[in-house]
C-alpha cells in the first residue's frame, strides 16, 4: 500500500467549510467507565468491601491476635463473647473463637474461590464448545450437562464424599464437579446467540481460527453473565462446603471451617449459642456479599449501560 493515498482525508467530498472544527467544538460525552458504574451500585460496593475485610481478616488476622486457633485454654471453656480476654469467646475446648473463625474463613473462602475457578473453567470450555459447534457435538454435551444437573448436587456431593477420603483438595474438586453445569448452560446459550451475530461472521470472513473467534470475539461478550455466575458460584461453593462439613463429610476437625464449626456447635446450641451464631453469621455475610457483588458487576461490565 503506497503512502500517497493517505495524504488526504476523504469521505466528505463537499465543501462543508471548517465543519470538522465546528463539530469538534461540541464536547464529547464523558467516558463512563466500568469502575464508575460499579461504584454507583451501593450494595455491590458494600459487598466488595465486606469481602475484602473477610479475606484480609482471614489471612492477616491470625498474625495480629495473641491466640492460636488450636491453642486449648482449658480454664476458659465456653467463655461468652465480649466477656474476657477472648473477644468472641471460646468453644467447648476453650479455643479462641476469633482465631478459629479466621482460620475457618481461610479454608471456606479458599475452597469457595478455588472451586469457582475450576468450575468456571470446565463450564466455559464445555459451554463454548457446545454453543459454537452446535449440532451433534453440542446436543451431546448439553444432554450430558442436563443429566448431571438432574442429580441433586448435595446428594451427589455426599455420595462422592463417602467414597473418597475427605480433605481440602478433594472437597474443592467435588464442589467444582457439582457446580460447573450452570455455567456451561449459561455460556452455551450466550455463545449460540452470539455466533450468529455479524461481528462473528466478520471475524470468520477475516480467516480467524475457531479458537480466536470463541475466545477473542464471543466469550468477552458473555463476560457479564459469566462474572455474575462466578460470584454466585463462590457463594454456592461456600454454602456447599458448609453443608458437607456440617454433615461431617467435609473438612475434618481439627482443621476449622465455618461449616464444621457449625456442626460442632449444634449440641451446645442452648448452652453456648454463639458457637453456632458466629460461623452462621460469617457464612451468611460472605454469601450475601458475593451475591451483591455479582449484581453490581453485571451492570458495571456492560459498556452499553448508559450514564443514567
Amino acid at each position: 500500500m503506497s503512502s500517497s493515498i493517505f495524504d488526504s482525508s476523504p469521505g466528505d467530498s463537499n465543501p462543508g467549510g471548517d465543519f470538522a472544527a465546528r463539530e469538534a467544538a461540541i464536547a464529547l460525552p464523558p467516558r463512563n467507565t466500568a469502575l464508575r458504574r460499579f461504584c454507583r451500585h451501593r450494595l455491590a460496593m458494600a459487598g466488595a468491601i465486606i469481602i475484602a475485610i473477610l479475606v484480609l481478616g482471614s489471612y492477616l488476622g491470625p498474625y495480629l491476635i495473641p491466640y492460636d486457633d488450636t491453642f486449648i485454654d482449658i480454664m476458659q471453656r465456653f467463655a461468652p463473647p465480649f466477656s474476657g480476654a477472648h473477644i468472641l469467646g471460646t468453644d467447648e475446648l476453650g479455643r479462641d473463637m476469633l482465631a478459629r473463625l479466621m482460620m475457618g474463613g481461610r479454608i471456606s473462602l479458599a475452597v469457595g474461590f478455588t472451586a469457582m475457578v475450576i468450575s468456571m473453567g470446565i463450564g466455559i470450555l464445555v459451554g463454548a464448545i457446545a454453543g459454537y459447534y452446535g449440532g451433534i457435538v453440542g446436543a451431546a454435551l448439553m444432554r450430558f450437562v442436563d443429566a448431571v444437573l438432574c442429580f441433586p448436587s448435595i446428594f451427589l456431593l455426599l455420595a462422592l464424599a463417602a467414597l473418597i477420603e475427605p480433605g481440602v483438595a478433594s472437597i474443592t474438586l467435588l464442589i467444582a464437579a457439582t457446580a460447573w453445569m450452570d455455567v456451561a448452560r449459561i455460556v452455551e446459550g450466550q455463545i449460540r446467540g452470539l455466533r450468529e451475530r455479524d461481528f462473528a461472521v466478520a471475524a470468520e470472513a477475516l480467516g480467524a481460527s475457531d479458537l480466536r473467534i470463541v475466545f477473542r470475539e464471543l466469550v468477552p461478550n458473555a463476560v457479564a453473565p459469566i462474572v455474575v455466575a462466578a460470584t454466585l458460584n463462590v457463594a454456592k461453593a461456600i454454602l456447599l462446603e458448609s453443608y458437607v462439613s456440617y454433615l461431617g463429610y467435609g473438612i475434618q476437625p481439627p482443621t476449622p471451617s465455618w461449616g464444621n464449626m457449625l456442626n460442632n456447635a449444634q449440641i451446645y446450641l442452648t448452652s453456648a449459642p454463639w458457637l453456632a451464631i458466629l460461623p452462621g453469621l460469617f457464612i451468611t455475610l460472605a454469601v450475601t456479599s458475593f451475591n451483591f457483588l455479582g449484581d453490581g458487576l453485571r451492570d458495571a461490565l456492560d459498556p452499553r449501560m448508559e450514564n443514567h
Binding site: 451475530r197 455479524d198 461481528f199 461472521v201 466478520a202 470475539e217 468477552p220 461478550n221 463476560v223 459498556p303 452499553r304
Partner: peptide, 12 residues
C-alpha cells in the same frame, strides 16, 4: 455489513 452496530464487537 448492513448493520454497522451488529458487525462490530461491542467489547472492543
Amino acid at each position: 455489513f448492513q448493520d454497522p452496530f451488529a458487525s462490530l464487537n461491542p467489547r472492543q
